[in-house]
Design a protein around this nucleic acid. Structure first.
Lengths: 77, 77
DNA sequence: ATAATTGCGGTCTAAAAAGGCCGCATTTGT
DNA sequence: ACAAATGCGGCCTTTTTAGACCGCAATTAT
């Protein structure tokens, strides 16, 4: 049921989040504080372990000070 | 718990989907067939009634032949 | 007038996200 | 050497999505 392409895309998305977070020199806990999402959850997102919702994407974008659309800039399958 | 801004953003996203679908002259059922998502669900998405996941966003983008990032082009709160 | 299509809401189950907390090994800083 | 910070995984409960199907009023086409 869980498609392989989905897993791949989730990982790409997670990597993107991680890159941006690190570029801003934020720790998981700092980002966690900024977007009110548990740090362990962000860790899972970055690892592509969870399929986050639209609103969570927006929360991350806000905290990372980036346009939501920018977060989806990746070559998804 | 359900934030007002979330509802607003979900509606904006839904409207965007609807606009693109209509611009392509697709009915809910046609789009449903193209992305393998039940037409009633798409209706709810367009109405901003559900908070869809990342993978669902990608499914819609694929079916609408648009970049995922383009789907998030809106002035979210 | 009749038939077909369309948008949409409701219902149900199973799966998964949300939200939150804890602990710990490793890394980093003092 | 010690203390603090960090990434990360596990666990738990509640809430919600996913996925699928049905029915119907209203619109559109024949």
């Amino acid at each position: 049921m869980i498609r392989q392409s989905d897993k791949s895309n989730l990982k790409k998305f997670g990597n993107r989040i991680k890159e941006i977070r690190q570029a801003k020199k934020l720790s998981l806990r700092q980002l966690s504080y900024a977007c009110d999402i548990d740090n362990s959850k962000i860790s899972k997102i970055e690892k592509g372990q969870i399929n986050i919702t639209f609103t969570t994407i927006l929360q991350l974008a806000r905290a990372l000070e980036i346009e939501p659309s920018e977060l989806l800039l990746a070559s998804f399958e």
